[in-house]
Design a protein around this nucleic acid. Structure first.
Length: 473
RNA sequence: GCGUCCAUAGCUCAGUUGGUUAGAGUAGUGGUUUGUGGUACCAUUGGUCGAGGGUUCGAGCCCCUCUGGACGCCCCA
């Protein structure tokens, strides 16, 4: 074997390995979400981990382009790059010559590509879900990684607001099943556009939304300040309206009328439409009265990627509820987000198809569930019973018995090879195997095997059929 | 992309104003008379002190660069 330089085992920045127990817990979350998705009529799809460079660039804004992981071309990739650009050291210009593939940044843009490409094979409205890793060259932070999973459900080709209602119900149901108290913030890009117009900032809409969105973080005084700068003094007086727009179950009717009247004054159809949509969805949801899930129209929620054009969601922890139920305070960013996007398929030459979708932040959900101890205890268990033995004869005997247990569809294993009994018991212990069958000379002679319950330590002599019966119950 | 702090055994950490062969707990392995784990006791493996360079008679400790981590900012799940 060739000489290999020994290196310390380590992972690339922002990535992580998962131990068996962690995978079991992650699968529990995935399975819960999948089950709900399927119940609402969504079908799973998959797409490649990487896409063509031009498929993804420009879809997430300038910031997004910077965060795309580029894959270096194979072969002598510098050969065809123009000498002048190589000399210029302009990374952005050189990129398109040396890289034509990028790792996917989210699941929504690949979906748009997918829908346009396969439109003749799909049934519309197309309801799909997609659970897969995505990659972002972002600086890792709490609950933020460079490789992470997204769980998305989207509906393409239907403008009905019933879709928004259904997706909100999915959010509520998933978090209720997982046991996480959440708060669902609802907002609307159309409404925000109307509000931007009110503030005289319709030409700086993106900047406007970023400022509004920071309200909970930097406070309304600083928002006023920044808005003042952005609108050259015309917009800051409207910021006081924002808290008045916040609509919950108790107050939405009169507040709704109040805001609509303001939009009518400035003749903002977007504002009126946006708000009307919010009201329709909010009313439909409130009819169901999901007790553990609070929801409101939160006008300061503005974030979302550039492509959102209608209603947008964000799911955050319901901190007061968590304090009450678990006596704990947790700091965590949003657990999910989504929205309606009207123009995504156009970019790929498709006919105009509106889409709306939601996404679950699995990594953060995991951290929160770990913190609140919400995972079921039995997730760690895999093997139900372990056969241990003393010598070749008892090993062979145990192996025979093992086949009968497996025939009964019970997860079981035999300790491989000769080892002292306490070591074999230890193996069962470490793997959280709840039952052990000990087989030695006595057991082989009588056919009565020693069946041990690892939790209680209690042990009894049973034949293999009786053991299978016990394991089944 | 910017800022602050950090990096010693698989893991959690000690390591005195720079001074001999770098320590503990835990995990691992072996054992406590050879058929019973999760508790106890004994023994023992394991570290080019994140990597590279520099200052010094001498560096785990001081300086620089890189890599990785934690937490902010931007942005986002």
């Amino acid at each position: 074997m060739a000489e290999i330089k020994k290196i310390k085992p380590s992972l690339p920045k922002g990535t992580r390995d998962f131990l068996p127990e962690e995978v079991a817990k992650r699968n529990y979350i995935f399975d819960t979400i999948k089950k709900v998705f399927r119940k609402y009529g969504f079908q799973q799809i998959d797409t490649p981990a990487f896409e063509r460079l031009e498929t993804l660039t420009g879809k997430y804004g300038e910031e997004g382009d910077r965060l795309l992981f580029k894959i270096l071309n194979s072969g002598d990739y510098l050969k065809d790059a123009p000498e002048a650009e190589l000399q210029s050291k302009n990374s952005a210009a050189i990129t398109k010559h040396i890289s034509e593939k990028v790792l996917r940044y989210d699941l929504t843009v690949p979906l748009a590509r997918y829908v346009v490409q396969h439109q003749s094979d799909l049934t519309f409205p197309f309801k799909r879900f997609h659970i897969a890793p995505v990659w972002r060259a972002d600086r890792p932070q709490k609950g933020r990684y460079q490789e992470f999973y997204q769980c998305d459900a989207d509906i393409i080709g239907s403008t009905s607001l019933l879709n928004e209602v259904e997706l909100t119900l999915i959010y509520a149901e998933v978090f209720r099943v997982l046991g996480i108290p959440v708060y669902i913030d609802l907002s609307s890009r159309k409404f925000l556009y109307g509000f931007a117009k009110l503030c005289g900032a319709e030409n700086n809409f993106i900047e406007f939304t970023t400022i509004i969105d920071k309200e909970d973080k930097i406070g309304s005084a600083r928002v006023k300040e920044e808005l003042n700068t952005l609108t050259a003094g015309t917009g800051d007086k409207y910021i006081d309206l924002l808290p008045l727009m916040y609509m919950t179950e108790e107050n939405y009717e009169e507040r709704f009328e109040n805001i609509i009247s303001k939009f009518k004054v400035i003749d903002s159809q977007d504002g009126i439409d946006g708000l009307t949509e919010i009201q329709i969805v909010l009313e439909a949801i409130l009819k169901y009265k999901y007790p553990s899930d609070r929801i409101s129209f939160t006008p300061t929620l503005a974030r979302g990627l550039g492509y959102y054009s209608g209603i947008i969601w964000e799911v955050v922890l319901n901190k007061p509820q968590i304090l009450e139920d678990f006596n704990k305070e947790i700091e965590m960013g949003s657990l999910g987000g989504g929205g309606r996007y009207d123009n995504l398929t156009e970019m790929f030459g498709g006919r105009d198809m509106s889409g709306v979708g939601i996404s679950f932040g699995i990594e953060r959900i995991y951290d929160v569930m770990e913190e609140l101890k919400l995972f079921p205890a039995e997730l760690g268990e895999t093997t139900k019973v372990l056969f241990v033995h003393f010598d070749d004869a008892s090993e062979a005997y145990a192996f025979e018995a093992l086949q009968k247990v497996r025939a009964a569809d019970i997860a079981s294993e035999i300790y491989p090879g000769r080892r002292k009994l306490d070591k074999q018991m230890n193996y069962a212990n470490d793997k959280k195997i709840p039952f052990v069958v000990v087989i030695g000379g006595d057991e082989m002679a009588s056919g009565k095997l020693s069946f041990k319950n690892m939790a209680s330590g209690e042990q009894q002599k049973l034949n293999i059929e009786e053991i299978i019966e016990k394991l089944r119950s």
